[in-house]
Design a binder for these strands. Structure first.
Lengths: 252, 252
DNA sequence: CGTATACTTGAATTGAGTCAATAAGTGTGG
DNA sequence: CCACACTTATTGACTCAATTCAAGTATACG
């Protein structure tokens, strides 16, 4: 493999000066409003911070690999993470892109069932899994929140299953572009135009297609006048209604 | 639609005679060992039973439809349920088959995001969603168990995403057959031979294929000598190792 | 026992993949 | 600032796995 397979490196535990100062790192966190920790405040939050450390990963670096001991749970605070699984012969499927506020690694298993890699520069909060599970007993609202987020993820996974099982290449690409836009809106951006931080290869492996097909479909959508491409990694929606029709197979 | 779209009908609340008698219906439940309620005993279980009722659904009947108000959570105790989503033009994707011990309906949303229908005669325990969520505060082990099961479901969904995104028709069918067998083993059956309670159409819509392709692949596997077909809805595995190789694209 | 339903099989079609070449960025060092 | 190498994206021609269309054959059912 290339240099891109190095692990996420730097990591240091927060050392809160005391209960009141503890919110420190979170006060400045852009993902705070979206993340599971947003149900906690004051003393409770500082409780969580005691088992929290921070990690960074550069573009292409792995946060962890499929099969690694599932010792930590992570929370994305900056950047985009891709989660993928591989078949022995190298075929890759990206099961999701994670944005600020999303968590990963809450496996029920001893080992991670998937690989997590940074798409661009990524910052994450890291929690020891066993300690976090213990903390649920003291902070039940945390567990409730995580169950809610797991339910949301399950719903998203089922949408992706519908996409992969039954949608055409064109519909898949449109669903993806609209999804990226909605995610940007959740983060407080306009969502139009929207940047595509990931490569065509990543998009292809997420949509169960090839790079060439993704490229062709994007080009075709631009020719059809429903999007514009200021650059290859930026999309401007010129007819969102038409796109929403295409997404569900209700093209004119 | 045909007569098969009638809703699940009969439903009656358990009326436990008292704390000790309350285990009554659960004592006889074949799914008890696998279901989320298995973390409860005695007084705690009787607490859950107070908000529990029972429902039946005949083959083809719906338990609920996508878009219905998500008022209840269910637990399959007997039979097989298929969970599906549809595109406006009628394309259908089955996102999962649920067996005794599996739960459904734990949506975070107001409405169910999918339709649930009985594949064969089905029996379910039914819980009012709001009451169940309340109960989590008193019975935290219940919530913990459900979070664990949600994590398992999420892992299964990701396996299905890999299957739909990257596996060939042959690999999909083999994965499906092995999965059905493993599920039968979890229920205490031998898993070989194993019955296929669902139709070819259901299998096709689960695997993102057509009926014809599923049929051809099953026939081919039999011709290749890795399975036998005592009947069209029963499979005997004659070379499980070969099947496990095929599943992961490592065919000889 | 006939009719509907489910499943299988065959032939032709097609949407997406593969292979191959070109073009457009991106970054590096002179 | 440009020239070069390298990576990423696009475009074209051809192929193929799975679908579609079309019979045919079991199987279940009233």
């Amino acid at each position: 493999m290339s240099s891109s397979d190095a692990r996420a490196s730097s990591s240091n535990t927060f050392a809160p000066g005391g209960p009141d100062l503890a919110l420190g790192p979170c006060a400045a966190c852009a993902a705070r409003g979206l993340a599971f920790c947003n149900v906690l405040e004051g003393e409770d939050l500082s409780r969580l911070l005691q088992i929290t450390s921070e990690t960074n990963a550069g573009a292409g670096q792995a946060v962890f690999y499929e099969g690694d001991e599932a010792s930590h749970v992570y929370n994305v605070t900056e950047g985009v993470v891709r989660v993928s699984k591989m078949l022995p012969d190298g075929r890759r499927q990206i099961t999701g892109f994670l944005f600020p506020g999303d968590f990963l690694g809450l496996s029920h298993d001893d080992a991670y069932a998937y690989t997590a890699e940074a798409v661009n520069a990524v910052r994450l909060c890291r929690f020891r899994r066993d300690r976090l599970l213990q903390l649920f007993d003291e902070l039940p609202q945390l567990e409730k929140r995580l169950l809610g987020m797991a339910a949301d993820e399950l719903a998203a996974a089922q949408d992706q299953i519908l996409l992969l099982g039954r949608k055409t290449a064109r519909e898949r690409v449109v669903s993806f572009l609209l999804g990226i836009s909605k995610q940007a809106q959740r983060r407080g951006e306009s969502g139009n135009p929207v940047g595509l931080p990931m490569s065509r290869a990543d998009i292809a492996d997420y949509l169960g297609l090839t790079i060439e097909t993704v490229s062709r479909m994007i080009t075709k959508l631009a020719k059809d006048g429903v999007i514009e491409l200021p650059s290859s990694n930026k999309v401007h929606f010129t007819n969102r209604n038409a796109l929403e029709d295409i997404e569900m197979g209700e093209e004119a």
